[in-house]
């Protein structure tokens, strides 16, 4: 595993931009509602994450933190 991300469930607005841009298709929308009523994105960690940070660059809510090893 080269990298992983953390998605802040409170800040996420479920816009699916990260889902669209993740080169590995590792971020999915979910049925989970956050306190604002948005369906939050979830990180499907299958160990392919490279920590490229594209998801964080495009995330309008600054809800994603990226770790790289």
């Amino acid at each position: 595993m080269k990298g992983y991300i953390e998605i802040d469930q409170v800040l996420c607005k479920g816009c699916e931009i990260c889902t669209f841009f993740c080169p590995k298709g590792m971020i999915n929308s979910s049925d989970k509602l956050n306190p604002s009523g948005y369906r939050v994105a979830v990180f499907n960690d299958n160990s392919e994450c490279t920590g490229c940070a594209i998801c964080a660059v495009v995330c309008p809510e600054v809800a994603i933190e990226v770790y790289r090893g």
Partner: peptide, 21 residues
């Protein structure tokens, strides 16, 4: 692992009121 992307210091913690996207 090292954190390589996080919230900027000069951006307050307040969630944006803007629409998704």
């Amino acid at each position: 692992m090292k954190k390589i992307y996080t919230r900027p210091k000069s951006l307050k913690r307040t969630p944006f009121h803007y629409c998704p996207g």
